[in-house]
Amino acid sequence: MLSCHGLTKRFGGRVTVDDVGFSVGAGEIYGLLGPNGAGKTTTMKMVCGLLAPDAGSITIAGRPAIGDVAVRALVGYVPQDVALYPDLTARENLEFLGRLYRLDRRTLAERVAEALELTDLTDRKDDRTDSYSGGMKRRLNIAAGLVNHPKLLVLDEPTVGVDPQSRHAILERVRSFARDGLAVVYTTHYMEEADRVCDRVGIIDRGRLVAEGTRRELVAQLGAHDSIALGASGDLDRLAAVCLSVRGVSEAAAADHAVQLVTEDGRGVLPSVLEAADRAGFAVTTVDVTEPDLEAVFLHLTGTALRE
């Protein structure tokens, strides 16, 4: 759905985005992960036609996007800062934005109702948006990006400043958009968000895309493994031996009232490990699975921790 190659943008003498390329398929959520100032928003603005790249190409649904205003009808843009008219109601905001896509009256009414429904704002549709909570504004901000039924949804840090409950709702909604076949580009500097919603992640730092892949692929680049700590009583050396016999467990050792296991896929082998321990007569009291996360990947690739 989206294909970018060699995107480069300079402001003055400073290169903000440097030779960035990635692609996103229909039904896929692509996360662009990086600290503030890494070039995520600039990249998104180029994708949405708001900034002209100094070099590179962008293709949306097979059509070259740079300089083609009509292609923008395929894109839903949700900017980082809430962009709505505070003195208009939710419905009026969405109707106005829908008219920019030249929707006829009937289609517009349907799309507005649908976008409000998707973001759980139907009940408040006739309230002015300056009376909305921060979370509601964020949801309406997303609804505004959906009113044109886009093929590609670009979400630029949509959960900044949102309470955990609203954040959860937004992330769930984003997943449902992808299930409905939308290609989603999701920029964030929240590691757990990228981990939770994105099918693939591109790590961007100082304008360069330093790595790209699924979480597992990125973690694999580290050469790190998952670990499982099993708390139990009895002969822990024997329990370690039992666990080592389970397929997928590469190391097992008893230490401090627990058995430490090393595996490629902690969550995957855990049921087999617990079953083997039970068969051997061990009562496992605690389980702790540790997986290398994107934070570790980012630290490994950039030499710095991901800052908020």
């Binding site: 036609g49 708001l50 923008r72 894109v75 900017p79 962009a83 709505l84 920019l100 896509y101 044109n148």
Partner: peptide, 14 residues
């Protein structure tokens, strides 16, 4: 400043 011009430009509007 409220991002509405940008939002309009993100639509197929010249």
């Amino acid at each position: 400043s409220e991002g509405m011009i940008e939002r309009m430009r993100a639509a197929p509007v010249r």
